[in-house]
Every structure is written in structure tokens, then in C-alpha cells.
Amino acid sequence: MEALIKVKRYNPEESEETYFQDYSINVAEDSTILDSLIKIREEQDGTLSLRCSCRASICGSCSMRVNGSAKLVCKTRVKEISPDGEFITIEPMGNFKVIKDLVTEMDSFWSKMKSVDPYVKTSFEPEAEHIASNESMTHLLGVMNCIMCGACVSECTAMEVDPTFTGPAALAKAYRFVADPRDEEANSRLGKLNENTGVWDCTRCLACVEVCPKDVAPMERIVKMRDLAIEEGYTNTSGYRHTESFNDSIKKHGRLDETRLALESTGLLNISGLIDLAKIGIKSLMRGKLPPILPHRPKDMKKVTSIAERLDNQGKEEE
């Protein structure tokens, strides 16, 4: 079978410009994209650089963009992406600097990983193992499945706007300790994760959940840590105020009161934040984009109230 592959090339020793190069390679029917790239490197073009090792989706080396979205190429078959022999476009992961061709600079990834103190903290030194339920360990297995391939970070929309965001991979790692019954620092971890660049910076776009090759579901872990942080009393954040204001606004007006949401999320005592907000308000006003000062009321407010009540009750039952 012929695989047609378009690779984004970059070689800093030659030029700062990137370019696309087309390859055509003969591979077996069930070949993966990694098989094809290796074959290209070994038979046609020794200058092509990529990372790969295990070929079995456990080492996390070979995450790259396939037709615009990050995948582990060792577990992605050519046929699946290109059933009728279409060109497949391979690029390095997004949100990373590129070293050469498909090889990305992972330093920022590892330093973020390190920033969440990624090791169990316990003062207790038992003579045998810690006693823990199998359920708690199996639950952690969901996050321990993370192979640190970087696919989630590649597609993270929050990180694209704000590279200082801790990001889905490191936050999923953080959850592994927050939820580990052996760790004694869950509270202080949550406090730290609640600060700027932490759990509230996620925009809940779901991209990380979608691209994760190991079903780690980073966003769900981030949302869970928000809940846990609130439970632990970490409520002095714009994220938490945003959530509360949103909730109140719907219950009271049946619609989002955007002006109030902005004010309350910023915090009514946060003077510098309010000044910044005022600047945005003025700009919006000039362009005719300022939301109405008083929100419209929906026709059937009763329905909205009953939905809100039902959701509240459901939340209580789950607890």
C-alpha cells in the first residue's frame, strides 16, 4: 500500500523557515503512521528527525499532529486516517517550540510537571505498606495511565493564549496526589493549584480529553480539583466567584447577567482589577458591545427555577 505523507520540516542549522515535504512510501496494509515515518527515515531521507521508541503506546515519545490534531503515531494506522490514500499531514505538536522537524522542546512541559511537586508527601513511615482500598488505587490508575506524551498540551486552547497556564498534563499529575489517600498535603496542594495559572485557567474546551491517547481525561480531573478546592474553603478566587455569580444570575434572572458576572468575578474589593475591567467596559461601549445593564427576563421564569432546583438537588444527592 502506498502512503502519502506530508511532513512539516524545520532545520535550524539551515534556515529559520519551515516548509512541507511530500513523501510517498510503500508500507504494509496495517502499518501505523510511525511505521511509515520510520521507513521514510530509513529508506528515503536520513535527515528526517523524530522521537520514537516503544512502538506500543507506552513510552509517550511519538506524539505529533496528524492532520492538525495531536496523536500518538505508533497507535494510529495509516488506513484509519487515509482510507482512500489521501495525503496525511504530519506536524510537530502545537504549544511547543520545535527543535528540528517533528522533535519538540519539552523543557517547559517538564518544568510544569515539576511545579506541582509530583511526588507523594507523607510524614508517616510505615513498616509495611500503607493500607488503602483497591478502589482508591484503581481510581488513581486512571491518571497513572498518563505517559506524558504531551498531546493534551499540544491542543490546549488555554495554553495557546496563556503559555504560563500549568496545563492539562501537569494538572492531571497533580490530581494523582490530591486524590492519593496516602498523601498528606492535599489541602496545601489545592491551595497552590487554586492560584493564578492553576485549575481555574482551564477553559473547559474538552480538547485535552478528546486527544488523550490514554483516556486520562485531564479536564475532568481539573474540574474535580476545583470542586475539592471549594470544599476545602478556597473561595477567594475569580474562578470561584465566577461560578457563584453565574449560578446566582441564572437563578434570579433566568439569564446571564454579564455585567454583574464580570464585576463579581473580578471581586468588588479588587480595585486594580475593577479599573482594568472599566477600561474594557469603555472599549465595549464605544463599539456598541456592552451587555445590557439589566438583563432581560425570560418569559417562563418558573421553568428556569424548577430546572435550577432540580440541578441543586441532584448535586446534593451525588454528594
Binding site: N11, P12, E13, R41, D45, G46, T47, S49, L50, I99, K100, D101, V103
Partner: peptide, 10 residues
């Protein structure tokens, strides 16, 4: 084939 210094897996 690759004579470069950067990530020369060849």
C-alpha cells in the same frame, strides 16, 4: 546521510 548537529538520529 544527515550531516547536521541537531537531533541527528541518522
Amino acid at each position: 546521510e544527515n550531516k547536521g548537529k541537531v537531533f541527528n538520529t541518522d
